[in-house]
Design a protein around this nucleic acid. Structure first.
Lengths: 318, 318
DNA sequence: GTAAGCGTTGTTAACGTTAACGTCCGCTGC
DNA sequence: GCAGCGGACGTTAACGTTAACAACGCTTAC
């Protein structure tokens, strides 16, 4: 019992006793058994992180941010990724999470799936959701102001004199893709411009390339906003293969600011999202709930920021 | 007890009893408590994965492969990333791993740090190491044939008529960077060519760009082998800014085959590594140890493969 | 001088599961 | 008819920790 008090830094242990305990711990190489601790306290120092596809830059970086912050708070992280096929139901994953006495859960799956999965989670498990559309009161949310970012991108292109802006969007099942598309659309409409039909991609450079080939067949395209940098890269290649110059003939904006974007040719104008920060913020919100530091905010928003580089320029006089 | 037998699929339970138990489990929403199970059996169904920086494409993809395979085997995954600063000692991380009754550990940190950390791990914890140089008998290893890949890249350039090949290498603390550099060097030497001094990068496009600028100052560079695709991208930008054509003036080969590489301009010739597969293989080797399926191989090697695209071409006649 | 109080340490029981052993019942064989 | 056996299910104890309470010695107050 005294050992337990020493290791948990409970008060009421004489300094000399504490020293003797610590000496014995060091000598014997004693390590407390976390399973026993979890069993008796009913709570572990493990956080569940549910992600969608951690191979993608955004999710991977958010995960990294969460993990680093968790380790600083002396928690460990248990990751579950969801098959890209979406075969495994949210209910199943959530149920398996709940038999493990997790201290909390971070749902970092910016996908419609996540909103559904949230419903299967016990009401009293602390949870934070990253970048997912959920009802305002179902869980604290770390949002990324997709709207603001997409608006900046679109307005930037309009301010350069382009009559309208084409959009290569992300998959409809991703709320962030829908948000970017919606913001692009309203920005154009508010400026009194005609919004051309969006071209649907799937986040990959390949889909950007294919939609880019469709874009070059039209003669009137001078500005394109791609919903992420990878698709922008694909568009870039398609434009180049068609003999078009960027930004001379066509201006292009991406989204995310992946580390490579600054080294595209030309360096890509894009909207920076701080995924790392989003992960850390999610952990903060979760800690507020777990350690009862007082649930401060229920909604925290990360502001994306337009980064102007070489892929955008004034509209050609035609 | 009978419930325990049913849920663990132990023999000696009448079919009718089993059905009644399952019905009650479903009705009550009963979930076994994994902490109690871990406590009594002394082993959990949790695997520890130690990675270095999961924001990088390779590590992230390997982690994804491990996680997917682990879920199929009904295990969960607990991730620890190491600060890029390398501040936290391997000993500390390993010790914290060991108080959690983990079923096994996968060391997926292709960094010198990993070899040192391995020594702090208890001898009887099942462990597998991915792409790290360790003594042959200290742990089963999933290797990636870096040597073969780098040799293919270098030979490809030589076969196109280039007199020699310059190398932008990765950080020396990464065994895979050293292996690629060594293979590049021996391939040149064996072919009777002079190996120019390698240019040291740090995996980032930025470092590739900077070394690329140093390369263009020399007039005699016609072929470059970059140790990964991001650095190749940086080199590409530096070459282009200097007015050099790829592959007309300079041929360029990368390494990894990140999904974007095929959409660079020009599409990048590179060496594909199957990181996903490496993760799955690591899990297989670990399962062999844990479930005693008979420790088959102690060394499994993933073969990388040269993918020729548009960034390499015949040497200019000069 | 004694009761009350406090600071420190020890004791007991409980968390939920499983290994090991025990019990009960029905069947078989002589 | 009864010993012996095996299948099905139950009971006991243990895993290592912590919450709650008990005990002990020392100081303080009257």
């Amino acid at each position: 019992m005294t050992v337990s008090r020493v290791l948990n830094e409970s008060p009421g242990v004489k300094a000399s006793t504490r020293a003797r305990v610590l000496a014995a711990v060091a000598e014997l190489g004693y390590r407390p058994n976390s399973a026993a601790r979890t069993l008796v306290t009913g709570m572990s120092r493990v956080l569940g992180v549910v992600a969608f596809d951690t191979r993608l830059y955004g999710p991977a970086t958010t995960l990294f941010g969460i993990e680093q912050a968790a380790r600083d708070a002396d928690y460990t992280v248990r990751v579950t990724t969801l098959e890209s096929t979406g075969q495994n139901s949210g209910g199943e994953v959530m149920r398996s999470l709940m038999s493990e006495s997790l201290a909390g859960v971070i749902l970092s799956a910016p996908h419609d799936w996540a909103a559904e999965a949230l419903r299967h989670l016990s009401r009293n498990t602390p949870v934070v959701v990253v970048d997912v559309d959920v009802e305002q009161d179902s869980a604290p949310v770390v949002g990324i102001a997709q709207h603001a970012g997409a608006r900046q991108a679109t307005e930037h292109l309009l301010s350069l004199g382009h009559k309208t802006v084409w959009h290569v969007s992300g998959p409809v099942t991703w709320p962030s893709a829908r948000a970017r598309e919606a913001a692009w659309h309203t920005t154009l409409t508010e400026a009194g411009r005609m919004a051309p039909p969006p071209l649907r991609g799937d986040w990959t450079a390949r889909s950007g390339y294919e939609q880019g080939k469709r874009l070059v067949r039209r003669k009137n395209v001078t500005a394109v906003f791609a919903a992420n940098d990878q698709m922008a890269l694909g568009v870039l290649l398609a434009l180049r293969e068609a003999g078009l110059d960027v930004p001379g003939d066509v201006s292009l904006v991406g989204f995310d600011d992946i580390p490579e974007a600054a080294y595209f040719w030309p360096p890509l104008t894009t909207v920076r999202q701080d995924f790392d920060e989003a992960g850390r913020l999610a952990l903060d919100l979760l800690m507020d709930q777990i350690e009862g530091t007082g649930a401060r905010d229920r909604l925290t928003v990360v502001q994306p920021k337009l980064v102007v580089r070489g892929s955008t320029g004034p509209a050609a006089r035609n």
